[in-house]
Design a protein around this nucleic acid. Structure first.
Lengths: 342, 342
DNA sequence: TTGAAAGCGCTACCAG
DNA sequence: CTGGTAGCGCTTTCAA
């Protein structure tokens, strides 16, 4: 068995209460006592037992982030931003891939219900109906924050959320394309029911309308935002009559897959078709042609989501009537996949 | 406060011991009792308190995976493999990015020492000296397994590890290049002190020697295995005299960065220079030209590492004299970045 | 098959 | 500023 506060107390000739106080509230202990206890703690290599502390305190000081696809490098900087903010507050970040465990809903909820984590940061807006319902319970809802994605519909309004300014992102892209003479512009969506697919499409339609244009076509084929889905969309795109001269894609991975697919079909980007992605993942700059894309401020998104959760979870804090929705600004990064309309 | 076994016990007219038994050892309880308890459990929506259970059982049923860079999509399939194996055994997987928290060593160790996790799967072979020493303590060492990377030197022998057959991977690549007429072949390493850089370089040198050739040059510039390091290496490569006609890269990301850099310098892949990567991350197939690479069986690596840890951690199991080293086979995936020597 | 009871390690209350 | 002590929720002997 490893060393406990009892051992420290005995060696210091103080009570366990004093040892505990020294560790948790150093200011409530005399300087001498503190110094002595700290010395012995260091000497014996004592570590608090987190189970005991959690049981007693009725909180775990850790939160769980639910990511829909850890294989998408898009999420890494978001998680880094979260971790940094949480770490500063002494809170631990756990990470799970909701598509991986097989059961996103139960995994999330059980962690919360079993007290393994104090809160949830959910980056997955596509939750099964049963999970959505369970999340809506008041004592659960106040421990949950959404990030990047969110729940559409009435339930969505129950949770604070942090997201990029998706509609503005779409507008930046469309304005640029229209400015280059493109009139026939398509939108490549991910899963049709996904909020990001929908929101960015709405922004696209609105931006086109401002120029007196209509959205040429929307492809919403894929089951995810991945490369393969983009690759397959190339076939669809070249089959369109008249063929669009530009495409806004809902993710960088889809954009890269699309470009690879177009390439294989003998269509050149940007000569024949211009392509814009969304996210600005690291690879985008090294893809050739380098991908023009809407950059999301990923670190900021993660940080804000973590902060929101910490406020929300804090005991005594009355939940605001209307949960906050934070929109994080985006920015268009011009690279080499956009050119003038042919 | 949420519902506890006391509530269940009261409603069922049994003792808390019986409720606990029903939940943890259903077979040690009469069928009637079990049915009744289960019903009430479901009705009240009871969930075990994990802190209490961990405190009492003196184990957490969870393990921590330490990943050197979550932004590298290479790791996702490994984590998926781990999670699957662990989940089947009722064990929870926690994930941390060792480069992110600022302090890889302390983070890892504290989780273990505080009893938050029962074991560690470390994918990072570049640990600070203090951490290496701390890991070597017998009661710590038996709770640690390495995966992908490992500790070089004497400490390394203390830990079981699972890795790809790196030397064979290098040989497959070199044999292919030599077969295509390449005689002047360079190796692009990651951080020079990294075991993967070293091991794959050794395999490269040995394979070349088998053909009566010597390694032309090694570049070991980068601080990581990332795209930027590869991009920068392009400059180095084109400056060599005579210029190599082929390069084996220690990672796919570096290979892609390198190709982008060569592209920007007006050097064509594979016409002027052939490039082979290592890993086969998802993007490799969609990069253009599609990346020829040594595929690692990532799911298998993760699974085996998890299994090894579970055996190792199991109480009562005497640690074997010589910890296991598992070599997982690799495979060369031919795509479009390799051609005949100019 | 079941119940009583001890106790995992820690924190926080209440007295002094 | 410090000590005594109850108790967080659960599991596990030991006895019945």
């Amino acid at each position: 068995m490893s060393v406990s506060i009892k051992d420290i107390a005995r060696l210091c000739g103080v009570s366990t209460a004093t040892v505990s106080r020294t560790l948790s509230h150093p200011d409530r202990v005399s300087e001498d006592t503190r110094a002595q206890v700290m010395t012995v703690v260091a000497t014996l290599g004592y570590n608090v037992n987190s189970a005991a502390r959690s049981l007693r305190r009725q909180r775990s000081d850790s939160v769980l982030a639910i990511v829909p696809d850890l294989g998408n490098p898009f999420f890494s900087a978001i998680l880094a931003g979260m971790e940094e903010a949480l770490h500063a507050a002494g809170i631990d970040l756990l990470i799970r891939d909701s598509r991986q465990a097989g059961n996103s809903g139960e995994v999330m909820l059980n962690h919360l219900r079993q007290g393994r984590v104090d809160g949830l940061i959910c980056l997955d807006g596509a939750l099964p109906e049963a999970t959505r319902r369970a999340l809506a319970a008041p004592d659960v809802a106040r421990r949950v924050v959404f990030c990047c994605e969110w729940l559409s519909g009435d339930d969505g309004a129950l949770f604070p959320s942090v997201r990029s300014d998706n509609q503005t992102g779409a507008r930046l892209a469309i304005d640029t394309l229209v400015g280059l003479g493109h009139r026939n512009i398509a939108f490549l969506a991910g899963p049709p029911s996904n909020v990001l697919s929908q929101e960015r499409r709405i922004g696209t339609v609105a931006a086109l309308a401002a120029h007196g244009l209509e959205l040429s076509q929307t492809c919403g084929g894929g089951q995810d935002f991945g490369l393969q889905a983009g690759y397959e969309a190339a076939q669809w795109l070249v089959g369109l009559e008249p063929r669009p001269t530009a495409v806004l894609c809902v993710s960088d991975q889809m954009a890269m897959g699309l470009i690879a697919g177009l390439n294989d079909l003998g269509v050149s980007v940007p000569r024949d078709i211009s392509v814009i992605g969304f996210d600005d993942i690291v690879t985008a700059a090294y893809f050739r042609p380098a991908l023009t894309t809407v950059r999301q401020n990923r670190g900021e998104i993660g940080k804000r989501a973590a902060e929101l959760l910490m406020i929300q979870v804090r005991e005594g804090a009355e939940p605001p009537e209307v949960p906050a929705v934070v929109n994080v600004p985006v920015e268009l990064i011009m690279r080499s996949t956009v050119g003038p309309a042919p």
